[in-house]
Design a protein around this nucleic acid. Sequence first.
DNA 1: TGCGTGATTATGTATGCACATAATATTGGA
DNA 2: TCCAATATTATGTGCATACATAATCACGCA
Lengths: 230, 230
Amino acid sequence: MNGVTHGGIREAIRNRIVAGEWKLGELIPGEMEFAAEYECSRTTVNRALQALADEGIVERKRKGGTRVRPMPAPQAQLKIPIIREQVESRDAAYSVRIVRRETLAPTEEIAQLLGLGQEGRCAYLETLHLSDERPFVFERRWVNLGTVPDFEEADLDQTSANEWLIRTVPFTRGDVSLCATSADAKLTSVLGVEQGEALFTMKRVTWLGQRSVTATQLYYATGYSLDFAI
Amino acid sequence: MNGVTHGGIREAIRNRIVAGEWKLGELIPGEMEFAAEYECSRTTVNRALQALADEGIVERKRKGGTRVRPMPAPQAQLKIPIIREQVESRDAAYSVRIVRRETLAPTEEIAQLLGLGQEGRCAYLETLHLSDERPFVFERRWVNLGTVPDFEEADLDQTSANEWLIRTVPFTRGDVSLCATSADAKLTSVLGVEQGEALFTMKRVTWLGQRSVTATQLYYATGYSLDFAI
DNA sequence: TGCGTGATTATGTATGCACATAATATTGGA
DNA sequence: TCCAATATTATGTGCATACATAATCACGCA
């Protein structure tokens, strides 16, 4: 072993790229050249460069060579937070209060989101998540009882609806949408914010194969921000 | 050749995982078993599983085997959009108007964000991004001239500030923060929205090594949402 | 019974090789 | 001169192999 690994070469080349050794869009040396330079086989270099291509740092074309990506489309690994962990990571006490829970026909908007017809039955749930007894997030959730019939009898005092669902039906796909909402009367009263305040909002629909599982809307109290690094 | 590629196996196994063939945290078959199943060599399966580990779908431990990552914390690959592309992908005409551009000492808040002292010089830029001549995003940007002195003379009529910077100084790291802002008088007039409307806001600070490059605040017009899939 | 040592096992990594594929360069014929 | 067929080249991919490494298991000795 040479001390040279594909991971090591990947790091090294990445560093050279961000250090500006080659201009954006410029061709970087070929696999053979790198192999000679690092004294390893072309295969090893190939894996390193492919990994960099996966990362979006470089673009590769057969015969065209490898070039630094002109617009490093910044991608970030966004970790969708679990509310309990968000609260507890701030050293606050987490608690939940179920405001409302019933079974009803979904609104037309929700039926469309969940891909349901008129006859679809849903559980509707309004939950207030508290941080040190202060309102943190207000959650509206519709659960497709056609996909998850057991939800109607689920005991949500122990575990939150979200955790219950994750445990019971691992979803395969989810659509997330982030936006800003102006607080209406309902949100104002339940979250204890001023009328018309701007609230950070996350809407989610999750799917189990072709079947929808749940649609959720999370309204964060004033001042919340979702932070992450590129 | 078998028609079996490491990419294909990667897809296949990923599908089987999200289809719930194995429970969260559960051990999935070993490399040899997959190799037998897909009739390929262990090396090929290894590459597929390593790629899945890179994606964060599975966890691998030597001798411990490969297990489905207990992902109650779903991670999403969030592609940070380039405004021009956002507009053009909606089949709208993109245009920019520079509202204000000057060189000034940063406010204390910005100086802190950018890690500057009192003597730091910044370019300050207010830009309005338009979609079919309608306001789409209002951008406030401070550029650290200590890191990017050339910015002062950059010709921003051809390329937007963002594209100019990306082309000139590839950043190595960025902090992003998403929140909601209530429209003040300034935002109201420039974006043409109602006073107090909730605006989706993205704040970004990018770094080149230890040196800050730019701090940006993007205020999206009413109704915007940032969508992505898990 | 308790513990250390070595065997076993599953994965990690690198290599050389053969062939596939796509883009470019070259050549040859009309 | 122009176009099509062919050669060349850089990367893409899979395979067999060899060895590395870490966790676990089995054994045997005290």
